[in-house]
Simulated assay, not measured.
Amino acid sequence: MTEIRVPKLNNNDSAYTLVGWLVDDGDTVDADTPVVELETSKAVEELCSPDAGVVRHLVPAGGECAPGDLIGRVAAPGETEPGTPPTGTPRPDARAPRPGTSGPVITAPARALLDELSLDHDVVNGLDVKVVRRADVERLAAAHAPSRADASDGAVELSPAQRAVARTVETSHRTIPAAYSVIQVDVDAVLRRAAALTESLRRLVGLPEFVVCAAARLHGRFPEIFATPVDGLRLRPATAAHVGVTIDVGRGLFVPVIADASSLGIAEIVEAFTGFRRTAISGAFRERDLAGANLVVALHQDRDIVSAVPIVFPGRLCALSLAGTRREVRLDADGTATAHTVVNIGLAYDHRFVNGREATLFLQDLKDALEDPDRLAGPDGAPTTPTETRR
């Protein structure tokens, strides 16, 4: 008899909601088959069966559970099941619709947000989903939210999502003495390569994919950029470049992570971006999609944005920002005035651990790579061998 216990999924929540079982009670499954979904405050995570056998549910859909709780078992065929009670807590108000009613299951995070926004729970009945998650309520609130102005003084309350942003920003500014450097990059060549790859890969390829690729390739030469602080005097070097990218398609800001990005070619990074955009539309990111970044690339590519200072997330040392492209006329070597497409790329960094000299060298190497995209990708988007640049 093998137990299915709840792992610790993040550092933000002390309890999760069991959204639903993916297999029926008594079903026989193979090892590593997804069997149950848990929802945290930010994502939905699948748990897999640790062994092959018969799955037994101990906590119902809508139940609340904490790390370490026993929520199910996997028994070998014919094996006698012990009588140990489950440790998860059923939540009747978060389970399937009450007898005689119809409607979707509302998870605990979604229910809490409905209560926080003073919305009637019946408002979700019009959603075309079987399980209402927090992201569904956020979209519903954004589409139909009335003004939250206080009648007495006209003050406006921040949305739950903005309050979460506020907490992160406040912690960052309070605990991280950040400096900022910015460099201008000529992107004509890399945009031509991106257009060619868009046609050959039949995927949208833009400047962000190349920035991620170029930055990740610098991990070996600039390990301090990707390190994590241990305390005010020590840092822990990263063994690989795990690059987070800000994605916002109008349904909230997410920062999914491309793991070990330095080992990937442009084609693989493009596939990762494509998947991120699809998932952002549904709001169905999982904790593992959002965890582990040691460098974040913040995209600020709206028209006429010249520069933007990114937030250095607590527990990280650096963050890159990519502004919008613009046309600029300058004199070439022969004195001819020529229009070029340029962009500003900035690096915010924890000045306790990263000096201005290292930040400057990192940005210069990033610029060199982007202005010579053949160093980053072959004709089919396959990775090329990184070459040494100035140091």
Rank of each mutant, 00 (worst) to 15 (best):
A143F: 12
Q301H: 10
D120V: 04
I247Y: 09
A66S: 10
F276N: 04
G292S: 06
A291M: 03
A195D: 12
L299R: 01
Q364E: 15
E268I: 05
V156A: 03
T389L: 12
P104N: 00
A112L: 11
N294D: 02
R139E: 13
R98Q: 15
T101D: 14
R286Y: 07
L361N: 02
I106Q: 03
P256I: 12
R134L: 01
E81D: 15
A143M: 14
P146Y: 08
V131P: 06
I176Q: 07
T385L: 10
I281L: 13
S321A: 15
I183F: 08
R202V: 06
A179P: 00
P77W: 01
A96C: 10
V296G: 02
G72T: 01
A31L: 12
P160W: 01
P7G: 10
L58Q: 06
G378P: 08
S147T: 15
P82V: 03
F273V: 02
E37C: 11
P177A: 09
I4R: 02
L127C: 10
V212T: 04
A293V: 11
V249G: 01
V129R: 12
N355W: 11
R73N: 02
V306R: 07
T385I: 14
D332N: 14
R278A: 15
R139N: 13
G83M: 10
I269F: 05
V169Q: 02
K367D: 03
I345V: 14
R98D: 12
L317R: 10
P82N: 09
Y349T: 02
N12D: 14
A298P: 01
D150F: 12
F226T: 01
A216K: 02
V297D: 02
V255W: 08
I4L: 15
T325A: 09
S282P: 05
L119H: 00
V230I: 15
G26F: 10
L22Q: 13
D153W: 06
A308D: 11
T2Y: 12
R390T: 10
E81N: 07
T175E: 15
T2P: 09
P92Q: 04
D13P: 01
R91V: 11
H173Y: 11
I4F: 00
A94F: 13
A75N: 08
A261G: 06
V211E: 14
E64N: 10
G356H: 07
A241E: 02
D13K: 00
H219C: 13
P237G: 00
P229A: 05
V185Q: 00
A189W: 08
G283P: 08
R303Q: 12
K367C: 01
L347P: 00
L331A: 14
R303D: 14
E64G: 13
T384Y: 09
G252Y: 09
P50G: 03
Y16N: 03
H57R: 02
A96Q: 11
T336E: 07
P86C: 13
S41M: 08
L197E: 03
A227Q: 04
G315Q: 08
